[in-house]
Design a protein around this nucleic acid. Sequence first.
DNA 1: GCTATTATAGATATGTAAAGTCTCTAATTG
DNA 2: CAATTAGAGACTTTACATATCTATAATAGC
Lengths: 128, 128
Amino acid sequence: MKYSKATNYALHTMLFLAKEAPNKPVGVQPLAEMQNVSPTYLSKILTKLVKEGMINSVSGANGGYTLSHNWEDISFLDVIHAIEGKSSLFECCLYDDPKCVIKEVMLSAEEKLENELRNSKISNLVKK
Amino acid sequence: MKYSKATNYALHTMLFLAKEAPNKPVGVQPLAEMQNVSPTYLSKILTKLVKEGMINSVSGANGGYTLSHNWEDISFLDVIHAIEGKSSLFECCLYDDPKCVIKEVMLSAEEKLENELRNSKISNLVKK
DNA sequence: GCTATTATAGATATGTAAAGTCTCTAATTG
DNA sequence: CAATTAGAGACTTTACATATCTATAATAGC
């Protein structure tokens, strides 16, 4: 079980925009270069963030991506959910038991993980 | 990102052995039937638990699997590590930065998850 | 309006790991 | 020795992440 590289790219892009580009749009090419990933692939990832309202995109010359107005509230969990989806880490597909005690333990542990990721805002890392 | 089905099978097998089979070995066939998985595949998973010392196996007629003597100490995290490996959920492969702040946040969150899984023992679920 | 630039969308390819099967071997019981 | 059971290895299948390629849409500057 691992977080995808796409999540990694998305988080690093968010952090870069927050740190380095408060105003001007940044094109996908410089973002892709600095992360050693192809521009078309990164753009596909960033489009997911656009659809979730975390960043804005501007087409055309001098276009690119900017953070949305509410960017200071965006948490790690928000970004991860945008990229990986929101389904649970653990699916207990056995005998359709709604009261599976194993599932209860796993979901409770996942909640601890999510709480931490929800409380970690991208903006917390900027001040450093 | 999801936990594998193999982890699911392993956890359910551990719980079953703890609840229903304190003494007699249980063959892989009944264990596989009740989980709707092929016996050879399940045996491959259980062999990993054997190698980690969580269960014992006995070949031959009337053989099967039994819990090891220290089974009451075995945690969810132990089982998960045996099946999924121990590597981190998040690999930050960018620019080889040893001080990546994103990685720090992710690892800290993972720690919360692991703490919960470490404190959840299989034996805790038996008393119910 | 034309051209360059930039994001978006869709189809397609590639790589990798999980999930599962098949067959043979080894160990144990009776 | 025969039946039963676990283990090991090669192999197949499936699913998903990771791209790539090409075409389309939107915008800026001239």
